[in-house]
Structures are given as C-alpha cells and as structure tokens.
Write a protein that binds this DNA or RNA. Structure first.
Lengths: 327, 327
DNA sequence: CCGACGACTGGAAACGTTTCCAAATGGGAA
DNA sequence: TTCCCATTTGGAAACGTTTCCAGTCGTCGG
C-alpha cells in the first residue's frame, strides 16, 4: 500500500509539502498541488487513518450509542445521523447497548480507545461512572431523545408532553373514558415523561383516573405484552389503549388479540406514541404521534460538531404531529 | 490522558514490559503483570487505538456496508453482526449505502482509510472498481445475503429458490391461479434469483404464466407501490399477491388498498418473502417466508474472522421457513 | 563448579502521518 | 539594485504504540 512518501517522491516534492496538499491545510503552490494530486491519483493513494489520527489527535469519527438498532425509531436516527455526519466529513461508529448497562459501558470504553471526536448518546437510565469519566475528560457529548439526570450535555429530544397532549385531545374527542396506558420504564426519561404527562392530563380530558388502567413494560414488545396482560387480568376492559412507544404498542396489540380474540380486540381503538408504517393496515387503523427521528439525528450531529468546534450549543425540544387514522 | 509511558513509570517497569502485559503477548513475570495492571487501573488507562493500529497494522475494526439500515432485515443483520463481533473482540463500523453506488464507493474509501481488518458486504448490483481494487489488495471480504457476479468472496445468503418454492407450494394449496408478483431489481442477486425461481415454478404449480402479472420495483416501498399499480393498470385482478421482500410487500399493500379500496383489497391474499412483525395484524393475515437475518449476520462475522485468520471459508446457503397465517 | 539455556527485561527502532521551524524563493517598493 | 515581506518549501521532530534485539539473571544439568 502506497504511503505519502511514495506520493511525495513521485510528485518530486518533499514529504511535508505532500502532506500539506493532501490534508488541505497550509500554503501550497498551484504547481505543487496539481503534481501531488496527480501522483496520489496515479498511485491510488489512500491516507492511513490511524497514523493521521495519532499525529493530529483527531479521528473524524463520532460514536453513536443507541439502545436497540432494531427499533425503527433508532434506525431512523442512526440513518439520519450517519448521513449528516458523512456530509460533514465524519464517520459514525455505531453501538447497540441492547438496553444493557454493562454492554453500554463496554462500548464506551471502545469508543474511548478509538479516540472518537464526539459522542451521540441515546442512553438508558442514569449516567454510568464510565460515562461520567469520559464527560469529565472533556469529550463532547450530546443526548438524543432521552435525557440523563445530572448530565449536563445538550439534548435533542421529542417534546413528550406536547405529544401526549395531542393524544389526550384525540381521546377526548373520540369520547373515550376507560383508557389503558402501557408505558415504559420509569428510569428512562421518555418513559417517565410520557407517563407523567398522561397521568397529569387524564382528569381534565374526562378520562378515568383509576390507576389499574395503567401499567408499564420495558419499551420492548414482550414486556409491553405482559404489562397489557396485567391490566386485562385486573378485569379492566378499556375502550382505547395508548402505547407509549412503537414496540410497546405492538406488544399491547398482541395481548389484546390473545386475551380478547381478534373480533373483540377490533372494537378497541389503539393509539401510539411513535408512528409505524403499518398502522394504516390494522383494523381499526392505529392513530399515532409522529415524532421526527430523522430531525433528531440530524440536529444531534450538527449540535455535536458545534460542540466540538467549541461553540455553545442549546438543547432543543422537537415537537410532534398527530396522525389521525380514525374514520 | 495517561499513556503507556505513565503506566510503565508508575509500575516501575520499562515501556516494553508494560506493553507486553497490556497487549497480552510475550513473556511477562507474574510480578510485572500485577504491577502493570494495578498501575493501569489506577490511572484509568485506555490504550490509544490509532497508535496501536499504526504500529501493529491491525485495527480490530470490521466494516459493514448495508443498503439501508432502516430495512428491518438489515438492522437485524447489523445487530447480530455487531453482537458477534463484539464477543470476539472486534468493533463494527456501519455504513448505509442507500442503494446508491456512489455513496457505497465513498464509504469503501473511508473503510480503506480506516484500515479495517475485514469487510462485510450486503451490496447492490455489480462490483464497483473501488471494491475490486480493495479485494485485489487483499482485504478479506464476505458477502451477506446478496451475491456479486465475478466477485469470489464467500457468501452467507438466504436460499432464495428454496424459499420461493415454499411460497409456490402454499399458493397451489390455496388454489391461487392469478397471482401477481412484485419483484426487485434484476441487478441485485436476490431480486434476480427470486424472480427466476418464481417464473420457473409457476407452471408446475398451476399458476397463470401471463407475464403481465409480474412487475418489479427497487426493493423499496415506493417503487413497489408503483410496480403494483402498473400491474393493476394493465387490468389484472389477482387473487393473491407475492411481494419479493419486506418493503416491497408494504408497497404492494398500499397500492392494493389505494386502487381497489380497503374492502376489495381484503379479498386478496398477500404473501411475502421476509416476515415482518406486523403481518399477523393485517386482515387477512399475511403469510411469509421467514429467513434468519440474525444467522446471516453471525455466520458472516464468524466466516470473516476465519478468512482474516487465513483459513479457507465455504459459502453457506441458509434455508428458510414458511409462516402460514391463512385461516 | 561451570556452561548453557530459559525466562524475562530494558532500550531503541519503526509504523505513517502532521506540524513546527528555519531556510529559500519570489516580487514589489524604495 | 537592494531590501523587506509574504509565500512556499524541505527537513526533522513528535504522536503512542508494538516489536525486535541484546542483554541480565537465575536455574538446572553435567
């Protein structure tokens, strides 16, 4: 594999000049530029990233830690973030925490070892010591979608209470009183915020405030299915079900069909925080709060790069829209 | 940030000894080991990856190039691959080609620059010059799910003709004659293979061989929707529709509902190559070929590491199962 | 008791860049 | 012409590791 030395020799310039041309910086004459570029192209030279990173202490790599890439919401974020990063000359190292703190920490160590320039974090639960120490060491970090208590990094997150408000309004106009709410873990800010907003808004929207209609899972389908089962086992028969994220709605739907049977289940209206592409095909169609995952990913990268550049960055709340699929 | 020098000094050994302890190789005394490890822990030392890579010419990073991470099939592959790689001490650099060859090439360059140890490839279409040159330079590569003509790398792929066979059998027992087939691009091996297997099997399974019932999209929902529209515009009224991958089935479903209306559309049975989690909720429920994305991802990583270790690796065809959701 | 061999260690070179510094070159003003 | 300044250049140091090479030390066999 050709090195910059080969390029320099072939271009008839010194190693330093070749470097200045290829890495963009410094003053170079047009003549040197063209010669070096020609030589590089002829040799099919590709700079050695590790060497470059070692010397310059910048890697042009961003770390992205999500809880589960299989959740469409996160894959959308990842996709948008990667695209934006690429556009700005950065690469994204993706890690799946799998809702598991140990694994998240392991990835953080790998990120640290790779000397990433910045970190995009869609964390679960509280800040780990590993994360704390990376923050303290000055690594630029932004939070995506979730907040972390006592971690002062700019965040780019959905406006949960606004979104829940849209659902509450809709429930009211549809005349629902007995509504089941299947939430997420209280340890995750999105879970806590959505739950809190829902509970706070029930009464003013004419919704039964019996807490037996409420249960929480783990934001995954299986856990949500169990949560929905528990509500039904308590003898509650809701006319509407509100799932607090995509996988949760899926799990709730499964439980409904399983316990009540398909025809009975189809008399229950389902509404979801997170809009999935297939909601239109379910009968009755599922209405949903749509939040803009792509916007979160893009804004997160933009913000992180500003942070890296040393500029101050303000947190953003990204507001949602409601997709009403009721007849 | 502490370097290995700091660790060595604190442990009271030479730099060489510290390195031997921390990187596992070489002969070291128990005493040296414990001292160095203690010092490293106290200083919270994390090795500088780029420096390590520069010197050792290994990065412990694998590149994974998929066409679209938002496709659940690929996000499942990515998840499994990442998990397996992590287990074996490797990190995965993920790239989205977006079904766009230019972008794929750009990522390949980035991979080359990062000096990845190996490449997992779920490519679109033919091999690009960039890919060719990387292969020629000796980079270990395995193919996931798709094959590439004239690229002799081991592949780990779904057995498409076996899967299509399952669908054909099912169509026959359900008594369908007028079946619409919505395929994918002919330039992608999966698209071509599924289409070929379907056409070849029609006659023997009592299916109308009129090619007006067949059209192809781009393996994305929008393109498939248009393809299905074209079939319907030709005046064809199938009793069953076969979508050649997940997004394709989604698009076909949209077109059906759009053109025929919901009630009429619900008289058409839909069957899919790729099983999605929501197929059970559609009415009538969608039956599907399920292929094991996780197995592909895991096997791909295992195979790639064998390749890196210089062992011979054999291609695998991974067979599918059929999920029959008809009443 | 001596020699040889093994385990272990310290020191230094090397990996491929970027970046600093000093020197060279050129052009314009006096 | 001479001087000065700005631009460009070559050379060398440095980044943090791994790995090679000699050498030291202790041990064991003869």
């Amino acid at each position: 594999m050709p090195t910059i030395k080969d390029v320099a020799r072939r271009a008839g310039v010194s190693l330093g000049t070749a470097s200045r041309v290829l890495s963009g910086g410094g003053n170079t004459s047009p003549k040197a530029r063209s010669q070096v570029q020609a030589a590089a192209a002829e040799l099919n030279y590709i700079a050695n990233g590790p060497a470059r990173s070692l010397r310059s202490t910048r890697t042009n790599v961003l770390g992205l830690l999500v809880s589960d890439i299989r959740n469409p919401f996160f894959s959308e974020i990842a996709h948008a973030a990667e695209r934006e990063a690429m556009r700005l000359g950065y690469t994204v190292l993706l890690a799946n925490a799998n809702e598991d703190e140990t694994q998240a920490d392991e990835y953080l160590r790998i990120f640290a070892s790779q000397r990433i320039d910045g970190l995009l974090l869609a964390p679960q639960g509280p800040a780990s010591p590993q994360l704390e120490s990376m923050l303290k060491s000055g690594l630029p970090v932004v939070l995506l979608n979730r907040l972390v208590e006592g971690l002062d990094a700019p965040s780019f997150a959905t406006d949960n209470s606004q979104g829940v408000g849209l659902v509450l309004d809709w429930l009211q106009t549809r005349g629902h009183r007995d509504v089941a709410f299947v939430g997420g873990p209280n340890s995750i800010s999105t879970g806590a915020e959505r739950m809190a907003a829902y509970r706070a808004g029930r009464e003013s929207h004419g919704i039964n405030t019996d807490d037996a209609f409420i249960d929480a899972g783990d934001f995954l389908a299986d856990g949500a299915e169990r949560a929905m089962m528990r509500i039904l086992e308590r003898g509650k028969r809701p006319t509407a079900v509100f799932g607090a994220n995509g996988p949760t709605t899926l799990g709730a739907l499964r439980a409904l069909r399983w316990v009540l049977g398909a025809s009975e289940a189809s008399r229950v209206e389902v509404v979801s925080f997170d809009d999935l592409e297939w909601f239109e095909f379910v009968s009755p169609a599922i209405s949903a709060v749509r939040h803009d995952a792509a916007a979160i990913g893009t804004a997160g990268v933009t913000g992180l790069l500003e942070l890296i550049a040393g500029q101050p960055v303000a947190s953003q709340r990204i507001s949602t829209t409601f997709i009403d699929r009721s007849v």
